[in-house]
């Protein structure tokens, strides 16, 4: 009885096709083949939150790309220390002023320039790690889900093992072995994220594999490879995009955490995480030192999360019926 109010709408919307013979004229008036992607795009464009988040993300990206330009304009490099004009007579960081628009840090470096450079690390780490995780998770999940039986058992157990790994201990151990760097950070993040994606993709593939259209392809003599790429993958792209957009902010936070703990990118390269870490002793006297990197982190992750939610809503087929002509 839960569907009582949905039913009539569904049936109503399934109807407005012209009959098959003798009505070609009517057909021409109709919208020509809008793909599910086009529909999702149309929905996304009407979503103010999505537009807002996308604009914020675009701005952050532009700022990150243009970081050297900003540094040039301000006249301070990201690693330049200004112990005399950046710190007061007690050696404490100086607040926002005309030289240091967002203030200076404990070593007299420009917070603005460092935040802007930090965006580069965050975005690179977030995007690259998410992409790797989605790629690895997608492939493993699809193989496990499609082939089932022994392949599935082996791959699923492997994912279980990874998901139950103590990730910080692992990260500390790895870093003490090979030393911290952006590459290591990305590898660690991707390594701990792909299994989640893999599990989801496996579940989706399992259900897709049982769909009649896959059976139809098989009855036509399609090879496994063709079924995977032509029939299954296109149906996985939507959830993969959603997970990628939601994985990016998680990866950014993950990277910031590693940097905060000194396990990520090595100083003096600025990251939001190591800036926050450096700012800790000064939070009472230099609010700008903590606020701006923290704020940047918050705004970036929030924008990605909101965009991810919007993308999911736009791609969700449950809403498709509302937009059928």
């Amino acid at each position: 009885m839960s569907v009582s109010s949905i039913d009539p709408a569904q049936s109503a919307l399934s109807a407005p096709e012209p009959s098959t013979f003798g009505e070609e004229g009517e057909a021409a008036k109709e919208i020509q083949g809008r793909s599910p992607w086009q529909l999702a795009w149309a929905r996304l464009r009407q979503d103010k939150v999505a537009i807002g988040s996308a604009v914020v993300i675009l701005l952050i990206t532009l700022v990150a790309i243009g970081a050297p330009l900003i540094a040039h304009l301000v006249g301070h490099g990201p690693g330049d220390t200004y112990p005399f004009i950046g710190e007061d007579s007690y050696g404490l960081p100086i607040g926002p002023n005309r030289t240091f628009l967002l203030g200076a840090d404990d070593l007299g470096r420009d917070v603005l320039v460092r935040v802007v450079y930090g965006a580069r690390v965050s975005l690179i780490a977030g995007v690259v790690a998410s992409a790797l995780a989605v790629l690895a998770g997608g492939i493993v999940g699809m193989l496990a889900g499609y082939f089932g039986t022994a392949v599935d058992t082996a791959l699923s157990r492997f994912m279980d093992v990874i998901l139950s790994f103590p990730l910080l201990l692992f990260a500390i151990a790895l870093v003490s072995l090979v030393g911290p760097s952006l590459t290591v950070s990305i590898a660690v993040i991707a390594f701990f994220s792909w299994a989640v994606v893999g599990r989801i993709v496996r579940g989706q593939t399992l259900s897709l594999r049982e769909k009649e259209f896959v059976e139809a392809a098989r009855s036509l003599g399609a090879s496994d490879l063709r079924i995977i790429f032509v029939d299954i993958l296109p149906n996985l792209v939507a959830p993969l995009i959603v997970y990628a957009t939601l994985l990016i902010p998680a990866s950014i936070v993950f990277e910031a955490t590693l940097s905060f703990l000194g396990l990520g990118v090595v100083p003096p390269t600025p990251t939001w995480g190591n800036m926050l870490s450096d700012s800790l002793p000064y939070y009472k006297v230099a609010w700008w030192f903590m606020l701006f990197p923290g704020g940047a982190l918050l705004i970036t992750t929030l924008a990605f999360n909101l965009l991810g939610d919007s993308v999911r809503d736009a791609l969700d087929p449950r809403y498709a019926r509302l937009f059928k002509a």
Binding site: P8, A9, S11, A12, L13, A15, P16, P18, S19, F21
Partner: peptide, 20 residues
């Protein structure tokens, strides 16, 4: 019966069955 049942959002004018 030829054709499809109508959309309940745009019900045909007059008798709803007339298109079929």
């Amino acid at each position: 019966i030829a054709g499809q049942p109508p959309s309940l959002i745009r019900i045909p004018s007059g008798c709803p069955f007339h298109p079929r």
